[in-house]
Design a binder for these strands. Structure first.
Lengths: 241, 241
DNA sequence: ACCTGAACACCGTTCAAGT
DNA sequence: ACCTGAACACCGTTCAAGT
C-alpha cells in the first residue's frame, strides 16, 4: 500500500518526501476509497509511506488537513452558469451542485461552514464567480454576501437531510401523539413511492428524486422566488426616485 | 463533584443508581457548565458518582446519550405561535427560536439532522404543532413535511454560520484574486459596524444583530415569501376548477 | 529541516468478577 | 440486573534522537 516499501533510515531524508500537496492528494484518495472514517493520521501516513509524526512537519493538526481537503473538494462545485445564465438560474444550478458535492463530503460541513476563507484560494475563486454574477445582474453590493450565506445555509442543512435514513420521519410507535404530522409523513411517502429503485435504473437515466431531493427543491425554489421579489421591490423603489 | 463520596461496593447495588433520565439530566448539566467538549463518558460518570462502564447498562453508546439530550433540548424550541398567529408569522418565530437553540447546541446538529424521530417524543410533539398549524392554515398535506424540512435545513446551516468567526469571509492576502467578492464583504462589514458591542449593551436591550443574524433574516424572509407565493398559486389554481 | 520510533494523554467500549 | 475495575483498541499529538 505504501508508496515505497524500502524502509527509510532514521534521520532527515536527502530531499523532503512530503509536501502539503501530497498530503492533500493522499487524503482525498483515502477518503475516495475508504471513506472519511478511515481518514486517520496513521492511515494517511501509511498511504504516504511515512510515520504519522512526520505529517506534523507540514501541517499543524488534522483540522489543517481537513481545510486542505475542503479547498480541493470545492473545485468540484459547478459555478459555470454564472457566466451564461440569468442570476436565478445560475444560483439554482450552483446550489444543486454545491449540495451534491457536500452530500459526498458530509464531515466537511462543520469545517467549511465555520472556516475563514482566507487560506482557501479555490473556495475564494468560487465566491468571486458567484459575487460577479450577482453584481452583474443588478444585485446591490450590500446584499451579495447575505444571499450567498443564505443559499449555503440551505445547502448544508439539505445535505445532512439527504444522508439521513429514508424513514427519518416515521413516528413508529408514537404516531398517536402526532396524528396530523404522521398523516403528512404517510402522504409524502405515498407520493414518492417509498423506495425509489435507483439501483436498478439505467446508468444514464436521472436518478428518481428522493424525499430529501424534493424537499431541497421546494426550499430552493421558494428561496429563489423570494429573492426575485426582493430584487424587484428594490428596483421599483429606486426607479420611483 | 460526585453525588455521593462514599464508595460503592463491588457488586450490584440494592437499588439501581442510574436511569436514562438521570443520565440525560447529568449530561445536560455538564454541557451547561463545561460545554460539549467536556461531555465524555468518564466525566459524565464522575458527575453521576459512578464508573464509566456503568453507563452501558442503560445506554448502548454515547450517541444514544446525544439522542436523549436532543429530545430534551428540542423542548426549548418555541412553537407557541402556531396556536395564535398566521402560519407565516408562526413559521418565522419557530425558525428563529429553533436557530437560537441550536446555536447553543451545535454538536447536536449532525445528530438531530439525521436522527429518526421515532424515539424522540418531545421532538415529535414539536413537529405535530407545526404540522397542525400549517394544515389549519390551508397547506395541503403533501407539502407540510417538505416545508418543515426546508425551514430546518436553513436553520441548521444558519446556526453553523452564526458560530463561525466574525471575519470568516475576509479574503486576507488573497483579496486580489477575488476583487468583486472582497468589495461585497467590505461593504457588508461597513453597514453593520464590524464589531457590534454586545458585551456593553443593557441587559434587556435586544442584542445588535450580527452579520450572521442578518443573513439568516434575509434567507428566512425570502423563503417565507416564496412559500406565500406557492400557496397562493395553489389556491388560485384550485379556485379555477 | 525533516524524518523515525517511542511515548503520552486521552477516547469510547468490553468484560470478568462481584453482589 | 447492575455495579466496579481492569483492559482493549484505538485516537491525535509530542518529542528526543538521528541525519
Amino acid at each position: 500500500m505504501s508508496q515505497d516499501d524500502r524502509a527509510r533510515g532514521r534521520g532527515r531524508p536527502l530531499s523532503p518526501v512530503l509536501t502539503q500537496r501530497k498530503i492533500a492528494s493522499a487524503a482525498v484518495a483515502l477518503i475516495q476509497s475508504r471513506g472519511y472514517r478511515a481518514l486517520t493520521m496513521s492511515a494517511l501516513a501509511e498511504q504516504l509511506g511515512v510515520s504519522a509524526s512526520a505529517l506534523y512537519n507540514h501541517v499543524g493538526s488534522k483540522r489543517d488537513i481537513m481545510i486542505l481537503i475542503q479547498d480541493r473538494v470545492n473545485q468540484d462545485i459547478d459555478c459555470g452558469a454564472f457566466e451564461s445564465e440569468p442570476w436565478d438560474v445560475a444560483l439554482d444550478q450552483w446550489a444543486r451542485s454545491y449540495r451534491d458535492v457536500y452530500i459526498r463530503n458530509i464531515p466537511l460541513i462543520p469545517v467549511m461552514a465555520v472556516l475563514p476563507v482566507a487560506n482557501s484560494p479555490h473556495t475564494l475563486r468560487m465566491y468571486e464567480k458567484v459575487a460577479t454574477g450577482l453584481t452583474r445582474a443588478g444585485w446591490p453590493e450590500s446584499w451579495v454576501v447575505n444571499t450567498i450565506v443564505a443559499v449555503e445555509s440551505l445547502v448544508f442543512g439539505s445535505a445532512y437531510d439527504a444522508v439521513a435514513p429514508e424513514n427519518i420521519f416515521d413516528p413508529g410507535e408514537l404516531s398517536d401523539i402526532a396524528p396530523v404530522f404522521s398523516a403528512a409523513v404517510a402522504h409524502r411517502d405515498l407520493l414518492l413511492g417509498s423506495v425509489p429503485d435507483n439501483a436498478a435504473r439505467a446508468p444514464e437515466a436521472p436518478r428518481t428524486p428522493s424525499p430529501a431531493d424534493v424537499a431541497f427543491d421546494v426550499g430552493l425554489r421558494s428561496l429563489l422566488a423570494g429573492f426575485r421579489l426582493a430584487l424587484q421591490a428594490l428596483h421599483d423603489r429606486t426607479a420611483a426616485d
